[in-house]
Amino acid sequence: MLAPVNKIIPFSNVDGPGNRTSIFFQGCPFNCQFCHNPETIHLCVGCGLCLDGCPVHALSRDPDGSIRWDHERCVQCDACIRTCPHTASPRVRWMTVEQVLEEVRRSAPYIAGITTSGGECTLYPDFLEALFAAVRPLGLTCLIDSNGSFDFAGRPSLLRDCAGVMLDVKAVGASWSRTLIGNDGAQVLANLDYLLSAGKLQEVRTLIFPGRDEENESAVRYVAPIIRDRCDYKIIRYRPFGVRAEYQRMLGDDVTAREEAERYAALARSLGASRAYVV
């Protein structure tokens, strides 16, 4: 069993509690306008447009037509990513569970656990289930960082060895949701309820956009009374860095002001989400 891994970061302090190894999978079913690593959205189609632009010749074409990436040679200049018209990346390793596990074992003495992220890691539930089953006996916790596109209720076994899910609730309301993330967002809200009832909701994150008072408020007003004090609620400020130019035009190139975000955190707390704070 193989899954496409965009990168593994041995030590991360921002992907859940404590020091964690973060595993970023390639591919995402959403197409969020504000995505700041859009090269993780699609899998490589093998068009080869990136080949010529690589200054260190780390990219080549395999006999089967796929693009081969030499990660020893790569200098991470991102030229290929800027060239790619498919919001994909040639810098992806197809890895077995054992290969990922090998990297986790190296970090194991220094970490509290692992976090699978993306892209959207739940595109590969079989892989995650096998990975978690092997990681948990190492005394490490497993967290899923998810956009909520996956039907968690339909597959309880995925959460058996998973300590919790960090869920993005990016948009509430079908029309804003369609604009922002490309679908009505109903699955995300269903997951919010299910994960809470299953005791597997680690945290919820909501992104606050500058000047979008109505949209920001509707999300916070929806989430806060549901989660109350049962999980952390991170209020995140929109930052335009890395956002695709065409969407930056719509969302603006301002960072959400700290005070504006603090206002929503206060609103969330007033609605019962006592563990709401700005990051």
Binding site: F11, V14, P17, G18, P109, Y110, I111, A112
Partner: peptide
Amino acid sequence: ETWLKTPEAVLPIIKGSLAR
């Protein structure tokens, strides 16, 4: 800078390395 907000992420690194 962000590590200042997460000392609990630094401690296991120290613990792990000293143990090894």
